[in-house]
């Protein structure tokens, strides 16, 4: 699904060069649920941006669902993001002036999908996250957990192969965080590949595989073992 090989990404200013990713390699198989962890400044966000095609990289290769992303033009990257990737952000990133229905509709509109098909997908996504009855509420009328579920509905409405979640529970209390993680697991079980970027080891343990980034490199990862998902929380703690 995702194959990064020898990726490097350097941020340069007049005075310093920061190697955010160096010789970074990671493969994520289709259907996998991978948690990427690491301390602050380790390169997690840069990995997320590169993996999500939000930023380019300086060297190496990155294949997303078999598509070589190096050298893609901006429009092509936009199209690839729209079709292959669903994003879930820590701050939900809903558009405050649009109601829930229209928020979920945003990526579908950019796919130039017919209105009837969009309506069907939005209804189905909102149904999955349990917010079908709130379709015409504004984000400000929902709790944080509900807003994140709307964000998940927006991420999955386009039926992407790959979900990229950036600290999806970072702004939620523990109960809501658990509900969101349950939802992500449910989506993963339906076949969607998920990469979860988090600094929270508890959440990371709910993934099938943990990858730790330190100083822009993968420092530790456990190979993918199909059907080896640990039991949520308590079991994960002993893994």
């Amino acid at each position: 699904m995702l194959a990064m090989r020898h990726i490097s990404k350097v941020f340069r200013t007049d005075l310093i060069e920061t190697h955010a990713l160096r010789d970074f390699s990671l493969e994520v198989a289709e259907g996998e649920f991978v948690a990427v962890t690491g301390p602050s400044g380790s390169g997690k966000t840069t990995f997320l941006n590169v993996a999500g095609l939000l930023e380019g990289f300086d060297s190496g290769t990155y294949l997303l669902d078999g598509v070589d992303t190096s050298g893609l033009a901006d429009d092509a990257r936009s199209r690839l993001r729209n079709e292959k990737i669903g994003f879930i952000f820590q701050s939900f990133n809903l558009i405050p002036d649009l109601d829930i229905f229209d928020n979920v509709d945003v990526p579908l509109r950019y796919r130039r999908m017919k209105a009837a098909e969009r309506r069907e997908r939005i209804a189905s996504a909102l149904d999955l996250v349990g917010l079908a009855s709130r379709a015409h509420h504004l984000p400000s009328q929902l709790s944080g957990g509900q807003q994140q579920r709307v964000a998940i509905a927006r991420a999955i409405a386009g039926d992407p192969k790959f979900l990229l979640a950036d600290e999806p529970t970072g702004n939620l209390d523990s109960l809501m965080a658990r509900q969101v993680m349950d939802l992500l697991e449910q989506i993963n079980e339906m076949g969607t590949t998920i990469v979860l970027v988090t600094h929270d080891p508890e959440l990371a343990r709910r993934a099938q595989r943990n990858v730790q980034i330190v100083d822009g490199q993968v420092s530790d990862f456990r190979p993918y073992e199909p059907h080896a998902r640990p039991a949520p929380m308590a079991a994960a703690a002993t893994a």
Binding site: S78, R81, N93, P96, V106, Y110
Partner: peptide, 12 residues
């Protein structure tokens, strides 16, 4: 918001 729109697939 613009960054989010771009992230979810908006072209320039």
């Amino acid at each position: 918001q613009i960054g989010t729109r771009r992230a979810v697939g908006a072209r320039r």
